[in-house]
C-alpha cells in the first residue's frame, strides 16, 4: 500500500513538473521580438529614377477606421526624423514639399479599439436546430435564455509609412503608392525605438536606393 502511494505521488509530481515546464511562445518574447515589419512595393517602379523626397511633418491618426486628425508627439518627431535620415542614406535628397519632390512620404498611426457584446439571445435561438431538447431527453420542451451578455475588447495598433510617386503624378493623374511599410507589436511608440524601427524597414527594402 505504501509503495502504491509512493508510486502515485511520484507520477503526479512528474506530471506537474512536465506540464509546468511547457514553453508558452508569447511568454518568451521580448518587446523587440514581438514586433513585425512588413514592407511591399510596386515591382514595376524603378526607385533609381527618383531623386528628391519630402516627408509630411505630422502623423495622420486613424481611430477605429475613421480619420482622427493629425498629431506630432515626441515619438512622431523622432520617427519622421529617422525616416528623413534613412532616405538620405539611401541617396535621396530631402527638399521642401514646395520644391516639387519626386517622392512624398507620410506616416499614419492606426488605432482600432472596440468593444463588442454578444447577447446569448442572439445565437441561443439556434440551439434548437443543433440540439433539439429531445437530444437531452426532453422532447417538446423549449430553451429559455436569461439576459446574459458576453463582453469582449479588441485593441489593434499599427504604424504605417506610405511613399507616393509625385514625379509621375501629372502624367498618370494620380498619386501612386510605390512603397508601403507596416509595424506592429509591443512598444512600437517608444521614442527610443523610433530610429531602429525605421532602419528595420529600410534594411529589408534593399531596392529602395539610388545607387
Amino acid at each position: 500500500m505504501k509503495t502504491g502511494i509512493l508510486n502515485f505521488l511520484a507520477s503526479v509530481s512528474l506530471i506537474a513538473l512536465v506540464t509546468g515546464c511547457t514553453k508558452e511562445p508569447l511568454n518568451n518574447l521580448t518587446d523587440d521580438e514581438s514586433r513585425i515589419y512588413i514592407t511591399n512595393h510596386d515591382s514595376t517602379v524603378n526607385f533609381k529614377s527618383f531623386h528628391t523626397f519630402s516627408v509630411a511633418d505630422s502623423v495622420a491618426l486613424v481611430n477605429n477606421n475613421q480619420p482622427g486628425g493629425k498629431d506630432q508627439t515626441a515619438f512622431d518627431v523622432q520617427f519622421i526624423s529617422a525616416l528623413k535620415a534613412a532616405m538620405a542614406a539611401a541617396g535621396y535628397t530631402l527638399v521642401d514639399k514646395s520644391n516639387n519632390p519626386d517622392l512624398a512620404l507620410a506616416v499614419t498611426v492606426i488605432n482600432n479599439n472596440y468593444s463588442g457584446i454578444i447577447s446569448y439571445n442572439d445565437y441561443g435561438g439556434y440551439y434548437g436546430s443543433y440540439w433539439d431538447p429531445y437530444y437531452w431527453g426532453y422532447p417538446g420542451y423549449s430553451y429559455y435564455y436569461p439576459t446574459y451578455y458576453g463582453v469582449y475588447n479588441v485593441n489593434e495598433t499599427a504604424l504605417t509609412v506610405d511613399m507616393f510617386d509625385l514625379k509621375d503624378a501629372a502624367s498618370s493623374n494620380q498619386l501612386k503608392n510605390v512603397w508601403t511599410a507596416l509595424i506592429r507589436g509591443e512598444g512600437i511608440f517608444n521614442t527610443d525605438k523610433a530610429t531602429s524601427q525605421v532602419q528595420s524597414l529600410f534594411s529589408q527594402s534593399t531596392y529602395l536606393k539610388i545607387n
Binding site: 513585425i36 511591399n40 529589408q204
Partner: peptide
C-alpha cells in the same frame, strides 16, 4: 506570396 517582405521572430510551438 504577395511580394511583401516580413521581418519577424518566428516561434513554432507543437504539442
Amino acid at each position: 506570396n504577395d511580394g511583401s517582405d516580413v521581418s519577424a521572430v518566428v516561434s513554432n510551438s507543437v504539442q
